[in-house]
Amino acid sequence: MKMNRMRSMLFSPANNPKMYLKAPVFRPDCILFDLEDSVAFTEKDAARDLLCEAVKVLDFGSSDVCVRVNSLRTPFCEKDIKAIVPAGVRFIRLAMCESRDDVIQISQMLSEAEKESGVEEGSVKVQCSIETVKGVLNARETVTGSDRVVSLSFGAEDYTRSLGTKRTREGRELMYARMYLPVVAAERGISAIDTVYSAIEDAEGLKAEADMAANYGFTGKSCIHPNQIDVIHSAFMPTEEDVEHARKVMTALEDAKAKGEGVFVVDGKMVDEPVIQRARKVLMQIGE
């Protein structure tokens, strides 16, 4: 399964025309156009129409586009899918994703939309947004619901609400989910995106949180302000030594394949499958 580099996902309200032109300027790895919480109930139709017209004609440069669709438990989700698939959206974040059944349901919805618009089945990829206690506990099963699932993300605001606690700067209340979700993602071979850091002015706090998320095994982080992108990119960027080593591993792998050898050595150490996987991940993070 191919994983694109996705260190940063910049939230952008889908009903604001300005953001379609502004967001790509800051070059996040991915722009996350939001049809869910940042759009008032009375404006869901307008946001959907604006998003569809924008993605048909605009070039978002080096940034991928993802759309956060409304939860399956709202009347908006099906309309979102029916509109955005023919418009050209190929990556969605499913809000409030709680179970394997949710993934199966959204996958069926996507298959129907793909069929109706003449798009190859399975083209639209899914990121499961895990943002409740139930979602966290079910995550390992949830991500197996469809091959469309290429990523999971963690949403702390709703999670803390469902846990019956509140968010703190230190984030101790998020520790269980933050340690568990990257493990789920790693087992499945998909990316894991950490929750947003809401204090826009607190660059130091953001850096500490992003470094911690990277240590836990997250591969990227959602953000709500362009100023947060560089800090996040530096936290999730592998070191130069990591990149150099990863390139050596991949070159040696090609050589070994050409010679028909199963085992090979890099820098005096035998290379096995986990080392190769890590090398691939490092190169993916820098866009190679």
Binding site: F41, D45, A46, L50, E53, A54, V57, P75
Partner: peptide, 24 residues
Amino acid sequence: GSLDFTIKARTKTAVARARGDENE
């Protein structure tokens, strides 16, 4: 100061609302 994609989108939404389509 809107661009084409915005004008088209707002026109389509206004038509749907004039037709009484449910905002779902």
